[in-house]
């Protein structure tokens, strides 16, 4: 299980990330640092001990500079960048997926995981597949009909990751999406664990 903080008030990201580190140790989870676009620009983020960086890009518009900053931080630290484009249902996405693809394509060594995308972004996701091969997708918020099969066919099974958004959402939804999808054994393995193991350098 990869663990990130629920976004805290703006001044408390440091302590929220510390709590994630501690909780990950006691739970045997994989710690992922959280950051707001504003926090990234202060460049005071500590990434020691984390296996990934999650940028919360939900609600308010994220500038290209902040994206570039997140990508370059992830590149320096050798971590995947998880971009949370939607957190609370009903909030607007803070990021234009075309712009994100364009930024990601300039940092091809950084795996970029889109988290929070839904079926309403299917067309953009299909386009992203060819524009930025380092873009992957987490299925937690993708609620569309046969969405896991759609993503695997369009992006390839190596670029689709299992996620639940637990404890914010019912994890059973994501479990059923994958178990009921018509996938080969190796595709299902990639989605459920293989890809996360590779990107987060587990095991």
């Amino acid at each position: 299980m990869a663990l990130s903080p629920v976004p805290p008030p703006s001044s408390e990201w440091g302590s929220a990330n510390e709590r994630v580190l501690r909780a990950s140790r006691s739970l045997g989870a994989v710690p992922v640092a959280g950051a707001s676009p504003q926090g990234l620009q202060r460049r005071d983020l500590r990434l020691d001990g984390f296996r990934g960086l999650r940028l919360y890009a939900s609600g308010s518009r994220v500038a290209r500079e902040a994206l570039n900053c997140a990508l370059s931080l992830a590149e320096e630290a050798g971590l995947p960048l998880i971009v949370q484009v939607r957190l609370k249902w009903g909030d607007p996405m803070g990021i234009d997926l075309g712009e994100l693809c364009s930024a990601a394509s300039e940092f091809r060594g950084v795996p970029v995981v889109l988290s929070g995308v839904n079926y309403s972004e299917n067309v953009e996701l299909a386009t992203a597949a060819s524009r930025a091969p380092n873009i992957c997708v987490d299925i937690a918020y993708h609620q569309g009909l046969l969405g896991v099969e759609f993503l695997v066919r369009r992006l390839g099974s190596k670029r689709v990751l299992f996620g639940t958004a637990y404890p914010l959402m019912y994890p059973e939804c994501s479990v059923l999406k994958v178990l009921m999808a018509r996938l080969s054994g190796s595709e299902r393995y990639d989605v459920l664990c293989g890809n996360a193991e590779r990107l987060l350098r587990l095991g």
Binding site: Y119, Q143, G144, L145, L146, G147, Y170, P171, E172, C173, S174, V175, L176, K177, M180
Partner: peptide, 17 residues
């Protein structure tokens, strides 16, 4: 709400409740 949503979503909510 097919074909917008996959049945996994509502089934997960009810069975997970």
């Amino acid at each position: 709400d097919m074909p917008y949503l996959d049945p996994a979503v509502s089934l997960g909510k009810v069975l997970g409740a």
